[in-house]
Design a protein around this nucleic acid. Sequence first.
DNA 1: AATAAGTTCGGTAAGTGAACGAATTAAAGA
DNA 2: TCTTTAATTCGTTCACTTACCGAACTTATT
Lengths: 406, 406
Amino acid sequence: MSNYTNISRKISQSSVIQAIVNYGPISRASVAKLTGLSKQTVSEIVANFEVKGWLRAVGQTEGHIGRRAVVYELSPTAALIASVDLGGAKVRAALCDLTGRVLFELLEPTEPKGGQDVVHQISRMIRSLVSSSGSSYEDLHTAVIGVPGVPDTDTGAILLAPNIAGIDQINLEGSLNQELGIEIIVENDVNLSALGEHWLGDQGEQDNLAFLSIGTGIGAGIVLAGNLLRGISGAAGEVGFLPFGTDPFEPESLKSGALERAAATYAIINNYKQKSGQDKTVPGVFEAASSGDEDAIKVLDDVAKNIALAILAIVSIIDPSKVVVGGSIGSRPELLERIIAHASRCFPRQIKIEKTKLGNHAALAGGVATALYNLHLSLFAEGQDIGTITFPPAPSLENFKACELS
Amino acid sequence: MSNYTNISRKISQSSVIQAIVNYGPISRASVAKLTGLSKQTVSEIVANFEVKGWLRAVGQTEGHIGRRAVVYELSPTAALIASVDLGGAKVRAALCDLTGRVLFELLEPTEPKGGQDVVHQISRMIRSLVSSSGSSYEDLHTAVIGVPGVPDTDTGAILLAPNIAGIDQINLEGSLNQELGIEIIVENDVNLSALGEHWLGDQGEQDNLAFLSIGTGIGAGIVLAGNLLRGISGAAGEVGFLPFGTDPFEPESLKSGALERAAATYAIINNYKQKSGQDKTVPGVFEAASSGDEDAIKVLDDVAKNIALAILAIVSIIDPSKVVVGGSIGSRPELLERIIAHASRCFPRQIKIEKTKLGNHAALAGGVATALYNLHLSLFAEGQDIGTITFPPAPSLENFKACELS
DNA sequence: AATAAGTTCGGTAAGTGAACGAATTAAAGA
DNA sequence: TCTTTAATTCGTTCACTTACCGAACTTATT
C-alpha cells in the first residue's frame, strides 16, 4: 500500500533477479557483490522467491578455496509465455519458458474467414501448445500477438490490415483475453521484429536499431533506448509514405504511399510487366534477374535504389546503430547487396546495413522479448517502473529457427 | 552510501519538490495528498529544504473551512543559472532564477578571433550578468552553452562549426569550467531550440516534437518522450543530408548534403543567380518575391517544396506531435505558408507545422530548461535517475522575448 | 591455517497510521 | 444580531513496521 514499504524492496528484488537472470546459476554472495546489497538482504529475497517457486537452487560451486556456495537460477518452468505471429497467410505460435527458450512451436494457415474465427484459431493453438508441453495451463502468464497492421489501443481493433478479413471489426485483445484468461499484448509485427532483432542481435552493445521490412508493404520498426518508438499516433516507422520512387504529389501516393508504390510486391510485378510485357511473380523476377534478364535487373536495381534512399532518410533522422533489412523481399541477399552499394554512394558516414538474422521468426522472437519484459516487470518489480529493467538476456539464435517450415 | 539509505528519501524529496514546483504555492497537506506521502514525511522534507534555503513559506490559505494552511514555494533566488547561445555572429547570454525567469540578458557580437577568446568572452559576459543582478557569484550553479556545431563529448571540442574560428581546437566545456568554476553543459543549438520550443510550447500535453531549423544550414532537433534524440553517433537530426532537391549521388552532396545544397542560404542565393543572373542576398530574394519577381517566387517555392519533403520524411519516420520550423529562413511566414501547402498535398494525415514561437530565443530557452532539469536532478534527487523527473513548468513566453535586439 | 559462504544480532533510517491539538468557517440557537 | 456549537482541515507527536546494513560468528572447504 504505502509508497515506502514497497519501492525499496522492489528495487532490491528487481536487481537480485536481474543479477540471477543475467549471470546464470550464481551464489547469493556473488549476487550481493554484483548488486551492492548486503548478504543478508540477498539471502532474504532469494528465500522469498524460492518459496514462491520463481528461483531454485541448482547445485554448488566446487574447486574454490572456502566453503562451497549454493547457486541459484530462475526456475524456467515457473511460468510460460506464448508468442504468436499472425500473418495474412500463416499463423505461427511458440510456447516459451521464463528464459525465452522455445518449448514448442506451431504453424498453420490463417483461418480464411478472419474475424472472430482467427481469435478461436489463436486460442486453440495456444491451448494445444500448452497441453503438448505437459504443463498446467495455470502456468501460462502472457501472450503477445504480432499483427500485420496498427492496433487501435482504444477499441482493440487492428487497422490497416487488409490481408485478414474483419480484423478491424473485432476487439482482438479483449476477445483473446476473454477466451484465454491471461494477459494479452497486441503489437505490430514489424515493431516486434525490430525488438526481436535487437534482443537477439546486439542487446547490451547498443540499445538502438531500425528494422526495415519489405514485402507486400514496407514498414519500419525503430528501437530507441531499448524501447519501441511508436510516435504520437502510433504511426512511427510508416516509411511506405516516404517520397521516393514515385511522385509523392500524385493522389495515388496519398493512398498507398509513394515508396510502397515503388518498392513493394505490387511494384515489382507491375514494373516488370511494363518493361517486358510479361507477367511474373516476385520470386520469378528475382530468378530472371539472376539468369541475366536485363529488365528484371533494372527493376530490382530501382527497388534497391529507392530502399537505399529510405535507409538514408532513416539514418539522417534517427542515427541508429544499424539498419536490419527483412521481409519476404528485403531478405533476398542479392537485393541487399545492391541496397548497400547504393547507400554507400549517398551518405558521408558508413551505414551498417544487415540482413535479418531471424528471418520469418523475428516477430515471434520480439513477442517473446516483450512478454518476458512484461512478466519480469510485473512479477519482480510489481509494476513499478524503476527505470533500470532490461530485457532478460536472449537465448541462442538457433532457438528461434528450430521450426524451419518456410 | 548504501543503496537503501538514500534512494527512498530521494524519491520522496523529488516528488515533494515536483509537487511544489508544479502546483505553485501549496500547503504541506496538499503535497501529501498529491504525492501519497504521509503528512509527517512531507513536513519533515519541507523543513529540511526550508533550512537549506531552497523552499520558503509565502503565506497562508484563507476563506476555506478549517485551519489555515501555510503555503510554500521554491525560493527563486536560491540559485542562478546561465544560458548562452553562441552563434557565428552573436553571443546571447541570459541569467535566470530557479523558476526559469530571465533576470538579465546580454547580446554581443561574437569575438572574431574565435577559440580561447570566445571562452573569455562568454565567461566575461556571465560574470557581468551576475554582478548586474546584485547576486553573489556563489549562487550561480550551471551554465548551458548552445553551439552551432556538434560537441565532441571526448575532447570537448566543437566539430562542424565553420563560423567560429578555432572552436574545434579547444576544449570548450573544460575551459569554461576552469574559468567559471561551475558546471558547464555544451549542447548543439538546434537541439536546445527543440527543447526550448517543447518546454514553452506544449509541455505537459505532448512529450514529442521536431524542430527544423533552416538558415545557413539545415538541421533538426528531435524531442521524444521529453528527451533529446541524439543517435548513436550524435548525428540524429542531420536532415541536411536527406536526398531531396539535388542528386544525392553527386559527390558534392556527400560533402554538404543534398537537401542543404537545395534549401539553405547558399542555395537560395545561387539558384536565384542562375535563374535571373542577379546577385541578391536572402532577404533580397524574399523581398523580390513579395513584389512579384517570378524568378524569386520560383526559387522560394522550390525551397518550400524540398522542406515539405523533409518534413514528410521526419513525420513518416518518427511521427511527432508537430514540426516547429525556425532559423533565419525557416521563420519567414511567406515560406511557411508554401511549406504547409506542399506538405498537405503529399501526406495522408494532417501534419501540424508551426512557426517557432520563440524566434531567436529558442536556443536560450532550451538552455534554461536543460540547466533547470539538471539542477533539479542534482539538488533534489541527488543524481539518482528516478525516471519521473520532469522539466519544471515553463514561465511565460514573453519572458524570453524581453530583449528584442535582432 | 586461510578463505569464502552464509547466518545471527543489534542498530539505523525512513515511513506509516492513529490520535490529538490548533485554527478556522458554517450553522444553529438565544 | 450575537454567541455557541459542530464540522473541517492543518499540522504535530507517538508508537510501530519495514528494510537495510555492519560486524561478529558458524560452517565448510582447499
